[in-house]
Nucleic acid binder design. Sequence first.
DNA 1: AATGAATGAGGATTCATTCAT
DNA 2: TATGAATGAATCCTCATTCAT
Lengths: 216, 216, 216, 216
Amino acid sequence: MPRATSHNAKSERRDAILAAAADAFDRLGFAATSMEWLAERAGVAKGTLYLYFPTKEAVFLALYIRELDAWFERVDQALEKLPVDASTRLAGELADTLQQQPRLPPLAAILHTVLERNIGEAALLSFRRHLLTRISTTGAVLETRLSFLAAGDGARLLLRLHALIIGCWHAATPAPIARRVVERPELAPLRLDFSEELENTLVLLLEGWRHSGGGF
Amino acid sequence: MPRATSHNAKSERRDAILAAAADAFDRLGFAATSMEWLAERAGVAKGTLYLYFPTKEAVFLALYIRELDAWFERVDQALEKLPVDASTRLAGELADTLQQQPRLPPLAAILHTVLERNIGEAALLSFRRHLLTRISTTGAVLETRLSFLAAGDGARLLLRLHALIIGCWHAATPAPIARRVVERPELAPLRLDFSEELENTLVLLLEGWRHSGGGF
Amino acid sequence: MPRATSHNAKSERRDAILAAAADAFDRLGFAATSMEWLAERAGVAKGTLYLYFPTKEAVFLALYIRELDAWFERVDQALEKLPVDASTRLAGELADTLQQQPRLPPLAAILHTVLERNIGEAALLSFRRHLLTRISTTGAVLETRLSFLAAGDGARLLLRLHALIIGCWHAATPAPIARRVVERPELAPLRLDFSEELENTLVLLLEGWRHSGGGF
Amino acid sequence: MPRATSHNAKSERRDAILAAAADAFDRLGFAATSMEWLAERAGVAKGTLYLYFPTKEAVFLALYIRELDAWFERVDQALEKLPVDASTRLAGELADTLQQQPRLPPLAAILHTVLERNIGEAALLSFRRHLLTRISTTGAVLETRLSFLAAGDGARLLLRLHALIIGCWHAATPAPIARRVVERPELAPLRLDFSEELENTLVLLLEGWRHSGGGF
DNA sequence: AATGAATGAGGATTCATTCAT
DNA sequence: TATGAATGAATCCTCATTCAT
């Protein structure tokens, strides 16, 4: 392995690890992924992993952050093109952005219960600050697209959307074993499509917001 | 230990185990609870646990079912007293029922990612059927309280509420280590109160539903 | 593996583990012995080890206790046969008992720095109490053999002997690599024989004690 | 970092490392000290450490040598002032010198089991030779203060003292966890004070030596 | 001489589950 | 039905040391 001396080379190595993590997450999920697998896949020694990330959770949190940043950008772009107060279309666009980043919802689903539990307090603080900045910025953009949103409502809406993503993903994604069970016609009402459910709920939410005149 | 021969005695023993599980969940959470702890607390041997439940997850799923049943009853009662189309009050009442069963949201939060992953297919089927029945029944009641709900919308709403509970609980419950971080004034916007957040979102959702004229 | 149900069978299994530990200690020493090696050698699964001993250190502390008990008995027997105030012979006999238990000194040498560091406080207390009892009992016997020992001096002498054993063993036992170095004729003065050194020092100590008229 | 080109500058850097090691040993002990900590503290890079010392053990052996040399000088000075055959006072003075170098006993305690195990054979030889010289020199001085010491007895006595230091330190220094246990009044007899125990034993040893007429 | 990125061996411990009694 | 002894898989992380730059 060539030594990553320059800032650039280090960044590239970090990227390689995250790429391995992305691959692992898609195939195996967080729990089933071992640091050893990651190391092999990234082409580094196990110890080298810990030069770049303090814990396993930190690796996947970094992955989440990367996905999240990409998503916010995607959202920003989508919002720009949108007319004002087209809340239904807006909901659709948001759902679309998530379909283009299928890794984001399952990562969000373990964010609070797993990822945030074993990174340092410093890393946590940094992540949360970053999150707040992103939410605030995109929240402000959101406020320009929905006239019924008061100042600060944009961020609130995004936070709520975040919760919605987690909840819908959980509700719509049965365990592998549960898949078969839910296929039964009798249980059809319990079968949800993540994207659809999210979009529908979001439409209702926005509609409600519009008619409520704020205060949430 | 006297042998539990009669159906009654067996049921009592099962209850003792679930009581231990409830206590353990409140104090330690699912992951930190060991079958050994449960056995000691329930006054049985470790092996005996497996006469009553096939897996650790099954124990906590049973606990969840118990909590869920109690909750549905609570909801039914609350709904009965409610005037028609008092959606804001209804949201408040629903949030209240959850505050009276603080164990339900955190159990729901691990339902799909943990509990359902390691029980037999049979148990899963049985649980899902039970769930559907409960949701349908209470959903029907709900439809009598909200005139804008079409047939089947009650169940759909409850399912959506379920997702909301999970999402809000995740978003509002930081890891112990994260607690301190979120206390910082600068991060106040990221600090959510579960019950409040749930209620607010629900209000918006219902309001939206009312104005949308169905179709979700 | 047959299950060790009876108290007896359990004791036998414990013995088997300790036998494996004794073998391992002689061959590999504490640090180089792994719990895996121990388990294989004892014919049990790794987890089973932890049914009998809470930590690796606890295994070897148990071994030490066993050696120590045997040693105290050996000492008691040796003392019985001895005439009064034959301090030089007594020193020789004591050195002999140690030569018959070659495992004791090297175990003592890591007692305080290693073994006592990772067993529970309860186990530590129990060990120390046991040690005190043993030391007091044999100390009393010692006082009957050496007329110049006041009440309590027997225990004190044994404690001092304990320190001597540790010190002499360290000083007389060079690291494997150091063996060759010390063989050089020029370094002969640094070459010590454990048993001889211990005996000589003990003779001096006793002689000094005899002439000092107590107070130590 | 400026390059240490001159012999002097190199020596200074070596000193800085040893100063860091001394600090680390006092605070953390050998095992808990990492080369990284040492490097940071000494203001050099990790790799630089290995330009000055071949292994971690070599660092602390060098520290030990330094302490030992200082100690021998201290002893020489103390002996000079002493009248002949004041063996009790002499024991007291020796104990004093150790109290003034509190780092020496714990370093001696790991000398044979740890430090000497991972330095090259050459370093070992050099250390042992140095030790022998020191012991011989100061041993000769000792022989002038104690008339009952034959030629060579001085060195022998110092070697024996070395073993005593190690043994007493082990016996008197319980593991942190053991501290509490030994505080119990019932276990008071097992509680030793290093300096006191060493001095008392030394007094007895010298007294015995005096009366024995040599031969040890 | 100095750096610091890379290495990779190494091991105790937990705990859900099984099954002989 | 109850027990509890036995199992054994499963893995994160540390850190002394090396060596390319």
